[in-house]
Design a protein around this nucleic acid. Sequence first.
DNA 1: AATGAATGAGCCTTCATTCAT
DNA 2: GATGAATGAAGGCTCATTCAT
Lengths: 228, 228, 228, 228
Amino acid sequence: MSVNALDDTKLRILEAAGRTFADRGFREATVRDICQAAGSNIASINYHFGDKERLYIESVKLAHREMLQNTPLPQWPAGVPAAAKLHGFIYTFLCRVLNRDDNWQRRLMLREIAQPSAACEELAREYIRPQFTVLLGILDELLPTETPDVVRHRTAFSIVGQCLHYLIAGPIVRWLVPPEEAALNVPEQLAAHIWRFSLAALSGIGVDAAKLEVPQLPRIAQTAGAAS
Amino acid sequence: MSVNALDDTKLRILEAAGRTFADRGFREATVRDICQAAGSNIASINYHFGDKERLYIESVKLAHREMLQNTPLPQWPAGVPAAAKLHGFIYTFLCRVLNRDDNWQRRLMLREIAQPSAACEELAREYIRPQFTVLLGILDELLPTETPDVVRHRTAFSIVGQCLHYLIAGPIVRWLVPPEEAALNVPEQLAAHIWRFSLAALSGIGVDAAKLEVPQLPRIAQTAGAAS
Amino acid sequence: MSVNALDDTKLRILEAAGRTFADRGFREATVRDICQAAGSNIASINYHFGDKERLYIESVKLAHREMLQNTPLPQWPAGVPAAAKLHGFIYTFLCRVLNRDDNWQRRLMLREIAQPSAACEELAREYIRPQFTVLLGILDELLPTETPDVVRHRTAFSIVGQCLHYLIAGPIVRWLVPPEEAALNVPEQLAAHIWRFSLAALSGIGVDAAKLEVPQLPRIAQTAGAAS
Amino acid sequence: MSVNALDDTKLRILEAAGRTFADRGFREATVRDICQAAGSNIASINYHFGDKERLYIESVKLAHREMLQNTPLPQWPAGVPAAAKLHGFIYTFLCRVLNRDDNWQRRLMLREIAQPSAACEELAREYIRPQFTVLLGILDELLPTETPDVVRHRTAFSIVGQCLHYLIAGPIVRWLVPPEEAALNVPEQLAAHIWRFSLAALSGIGVDAAKLEVPQLPRIAQTAGAAS
DNA sequence: AATGAATGAGCCTTCATTCAT
DNA sequence: GATGAATGAAGGCTCATTCAT
């Protein structure tokens, strides 16, 4: 029970911190506000987490953990075709990313991905890599067996990149397309598109890739600004 | 002449501010450091720009303007095949995005995209939309004419998303693959991969899309806001 | 038995506190560090001693008590010449003072002497005065009987002052002389010097003191409190 | 004039800091109180001195500088006997040390000598060494020319030690002697005593020192407390 | 009797901003 | 027009202390 109470306080602080960090970023968020939101004393952060930065790292880890728990990957029984599993992966990923509810976990992850901090390496190791491994396992069933690692990895990034784009550049997407079309960008529809796009792409990757001659590279004007 | 001198000082401050904001973000960047980098007085920012926030907006605008100048849209002579133009577009995009040189403009823009401020809408309208339009033009040549807008747009986002992923999630990519493979992620190789992937995908989009039945959706446990 | 355990804990805390206070002073020493050094709970100080200040007083008293036990007054058999007793006194004093071992009691006493607190008067009465009396006894044998008290006292202070200087101003002494000379400042050598110096001085004090005309006082510009 | 104003503010802060540090020590003194006493803003310390510690060092240096200026050594015309110069040195030293006025400089120096900080080494180099050199010069005229350095230095420390004792152990001296005698401990009388004592000692140092056999060393009971 | 979670006052420092010159 | 000295609000953090258990 006292253990419970401890956990309660730490958890309350973590939740409040996650929400505040997601709203305002690391610097803009103050420990005073976090403690007030958590209903705890201003010294409790130092007591439970050491300092603000370690609190941040813990709240980022919690965010990812909760995202995975709230929207876990489906469990596929044996015999499910790889194409169906790929669709399930994409759809789950988009559900996490596009969740319309005000879930601070997603917003905090976005900040962390765009501006990686000390928490990011740990995050990649503990939470992202397992998901990546699952995707690679699905792709293995869809790609020729002799496909080299570098192609398998890039293919996985091609799929993940399409999904993440709606998280990263969400506001820009909404400004580039008409409102009535933006309203259609729900996980179901987007998953269908990305799945079709990627499935078609997969049939053209690895097999005839070598035959497809890359056009001559255009000359890229290296901007003068680079040195100014 | 004194106007000139003023402009010089303002420009020097703007450049220093842009670089510093790109490096450290709005809050983390201090006016002291910016002034020191610009070789100007500590009070010069308030004198020339009013306050720190207006300086930030001005430096974002400058970044925007300089990127427009430094990144002209690709021009292809008539008769170039659409597939080649697509490759040129992807390669150019990746060169801008993966540019190792210190172009603070790009990094500042990235911050704006991930955490949109007031300056962001203008950015989307003036800088991103024209590029988007060029890409749509290329895709029009590769997709069936009856392809609906929503599919054309999503296809464009699928391509852009693949490219942006190496900018946005660059550190994570480097943590997920072995170092010797990460070293291969140069614009030339990545462009070849994304081009092949997308070209293969295009042949499967729009045409037989309707035929490709989406698998039954997995049940996504939306324990939304489990803690919110 | 539980009383014994209590005493053990209190003693452990007192020792740890004494050492820590001696090292870092009252304010700089934290109750956390003291409790950690004592292997006790953070709340044990308030529980056993009420507050930090009372712990300090108790640890000064303990230091006092232990020094009394560890530093018995020298005992000379009858017939030892006064000059030899003086040398013994000086040498013993210097041994205590220059003791390289970690005796926190001495260091804590030094702090008390320089910045007297409430505990200091008791210290002077019980610990210092007896030693002072012994020295006066020795000097009585070396000075003319008619020597007035004030001269006897000042002579004692002259001897004690020479010894204490190597404790008080130890670091400064080491900065003023070359390292190889500082290495020679061991109790044996310093005792020999101070003994010779003082013995020679004693032959000139009290006897012909009146004959030795003090030179005219230089004018001391007492711009006292020029800024106060 | 603006330079003057700057100097005024810095000096005001330094004086207030010196007084506060002398009263309460480094840790106990707060920058808030110092600034309030100086009539300046709380950020002015950081602006003018960087941080609290550098302010402390500067105030210690100022204290010593002002002590030397307020009570400078006398200037001796050629031909003044060394004995008279020695008396002048001792008297001046005692005047600085025993100044009855509430001069924070003396109290701050005492703290610094007893608990050397980062300021102390600089202090020794810049302010104490020159005074030490003057004393050595006087002693050179009073000691045989072949006197080795180590003896010359120890002799100087014997003289300085006698004087400093009345600063360091002032309260204890007052507790050890009757009040009416303590009242006599003014610079004039103490200088006369220390001068006579030292002058007599000097005639016995260096010359017959070798002849004066040191008595057998008593056995010093190394206290058990050293290891506890 | 003894603990460890929790408290709140207060510390030094940093920062954008202002103002007299 | 431009400066640098000075400001005050606010930030993170530390600390001795308390309280429920």
